[in-house]
Simulated assay, not measured.
Amino acid sequence: MQTSTPQTRSRNLVKTIPGLLVSAFFLWYTFRGIHPSEFRSLSFVHPVWIAGVLGFTLVGYTLRCVRWARMLQSANARFGTCARVLMTSLAANNIMPLRIGDIMRIFTYAPDLGVAPSAIFSTVILEKLLDVFVVGLIFVQTAGRDLPTNIRRGADAALLISTVGLLVLMFGAGQLEAPMRKIFASLPQNKLIAKMEHWLLLAISTLRQMGIRGNIVLLLYSAVIWFCEGMIFVSAIHLVGIQTDLLGPWEAVSFANLSYMLPSSPGAIGPFEWAVKLALASHGTSRAIAAVFGLAIHAWMLISVTGAGGLIFLVHRFRSHNHIPLLEEIETLPTELP
């Protein structure tokens, strides 16, 4: 596979500019008309809920590590290594463009895991499918009536498609490979079609190896992971005494995480705050307070995950005596997925 060249790096830099502009627009759109005094309005009204924010953050991300380790159990990957690689990649995704963290997980850390990059890539696909399904389900069940109709209809359609697709993949993986090969063989043969076939068959292979029981366990893990994510929002809302109904935090967490699908800067800065503002406002929270809360909860998520992942990364590099600069490692990453 090709590695990065000066021309490739320049092209990647150009690709990040639209994302930065999208983030800048959403930040302006979200916070326009909000007086600076509103940013000082949040305070710890019920400090006991700090335990909830910390506890659910720890449990949720620990379970993410457990889920990914389970996906790689056929390769006998160690839990500690899986946890280190996953947290490092999540931290990198928050501070670097173009989902560099996922690319590093697939290529840079494949030798550490003892797993082929293509197999790791299949688990990343499965991870995203599970998360989108659960988050979409939460959003559709909690979306307030004040949300724009096109957003609600789009979410309903996306949930229906993802539900059917995920159920077929999870419970029919053993019978899907041969029909998929026939379908792709009937399509025009080009590089994109070949890659799509390769990626889909990888995901099917991973699900087939897990078995129906294993797939159900993965789905249950995903449900608990997103319950913890929602409880972070619930705890934070109680912590600062924001007025909303029972569904408000759940729509906020689901819509905010769906906003990561919009092209923007690393960490979805801008779209995340806009989504939280829109969600909480549709459940009775003032728009100004909802926007400021979105900024605060996003800061916590970025700082906690990036801080934990960064610390794990630095400790491992120190113990392994790896003195290669991180940017130099990134420059050697392949320019294409397996």
Rank of each mutant, 00 (worst) to 15 (best):
174 G>W: 15
175 Q>A: 15
176 L>K: 02
176 L>Q: 03
177 E>Q: 12
177 E>Y: 08
177 E>A: 13
178 A>I: 04
179 P>T: 09
179 P>K: 01
180 M>F: 14
180 M>D: 10
181 R>M: 08
181 R>P: 03
182 K>C: 00
182 K>Q: 14
182 K>W: 13
182 K>F: 10
182 K>M: 12
183 I>M: 09
184 F>K: 01
184 F>A: 00
185 A>H: 05
185 A>P: 01
186 S>R: 14
188 P>G: 07
188 P>A: 12
188 P>H: 11
189 Q>T: 12
189 Q>A: 15
189 Q>D: 14
189 Q>W: 10
190 N>W: 03
190 N>S: 10
191 K>Q: 06
192 L>S: 08
194 A>N: 07
194 A>G: 13
195 K>P: 04
196 M>K: 03
196 M>C: 07
196 M>H: 04
197 E>L: 13
197 E>V: 08
198 H>I: 04
198 H>W: 01
200 L>W: 08
200 L>S: 14
201 L>K: 01
201 L>V: 05
202 L>R: 10
202 L>N: 08
202 L>H: 09
203 A>V: 03
203 A>S: 02
204 I>L: 12
205 S>E: 11
205 S>T: 10
206 T>I: 02
206 T>M: 08
206 T>G: 02
206 T>W: 01
207 L>K: 06
207 L>C: 14
208 R>V: 02
209 Q>F: 06
209 Q>A: 12
210 M>F: 13
211 G>F: 10
211 G>Q: 09
211 G>C: 09
212 I>N: 11
213 R>K: 14
